[in-house]
Write a protein that binds this DNA or RNA. Structure first.
Lengths: 143, 143
DNA sequence: TAGAAACAATTTGCATGCTAATTATAATTT
DNA sequence: AAATTATAATTAGCATGCAAATTGTTTCTA
């Protein structure tokens, strides 16, 4: 196996997200939806622009994901304070339940990824990952 | 920022691949093409199934990527030894030149990601990343 | 060796992902 | 206040990504 950073990043991301997709399909979620539920659990009532930034995808992509989630009754989109330009997004009860299920799925996926790796090693890995994250991130994009 | 593994993995992957896309667009490559060139530089003459596995994507996706790369003269697809089922893929001269350019782009991207991180820290990060890679990978998929 | 099974690639249909252009609304400027 | 500018969301067009079905070829097996 190629041990370069870019290759392993691609491989880990691909396999991890495939694992998450497989599990989330069992609770009737498509690829783009888990990250949105995860974000809304922490930031319920955000506008679409901020959800997109938090999920690291374009607002144009977010439109489609959210409209399918609204159709399925996972979220609601509302105007607020007479502002008709911004749309505030809220989890429904069903959406909150599904988001909680996703937390378990993410957690089990993480356990699988770090299987056989000590807490200390995991800890310092995550610290470096955080530094990389900051290096690659314009602070305003992820707020 | 959310410091969970799954969140940071998503963020790093998104920002890193966006950086690579931006640079590779300058040498007229689309999203899926850099990883194929990178793979072929190490495994020229592979069949499509193996390239797909090496790039961690489905063979069905590979079909389209390769056909666009063939149209642009980056690769050639040939039959071999009277076997009309498998297609062996080779870099053209143009493809090889572009692949070499991509190596530079990947390398500069990696430098940006690890900016301010010591060689020792980077080394142990990559070791853990490799373990995670193995944990998530069925050996036969990536050979 | 004929039929069955396996295999490599493609096609189809859908859901992301992007950029660029558009629409509608809000805020600023003059 | 009217015109300009900025902003949030959507739409359109393309390239991935997937799963499932199909096609053509090869291998196995009875």
């Amino acid at each position: 196996m190629d041990k370069s950073f870019h290759y392993m990043l691609m491989a880990v991301q691909a396999h991890f997200s495939r694992m998450i997709m497989e599990e989330s399909a069992k609770v009737s979620l498509t690829t783009g939806q888990p990250k949105v539920l995860d974000y809304l659990l922490l930031h319920n009532g955000s506008i679409q622009k901020d959800i997109a930034a938090g999920c690291c995808i374009d607002v144009a992509t977010m439109t489609g994901i959210l409209s399918r989630m609204e159709d399925k009754g996972l979220i609601e989109r509302k105007n607020k304070n007479g502002n008709r330009r911004s749309l505030y997004v809220y989890l429904t009860e069903k959406g909150e339940k599904t988001a909680e299920q996703m937390k378990g799925i993410f957690s089990r996926g993480e356990d699988a990824a770090f299987s056989g790796i000590s807490d200390e090693e995991k800890e310092s890995f995550l610290e470096t990952l955080y530094k990389i994250c900051e290096n690659l991130t314009d602070t305003e994009v992820l707020q």
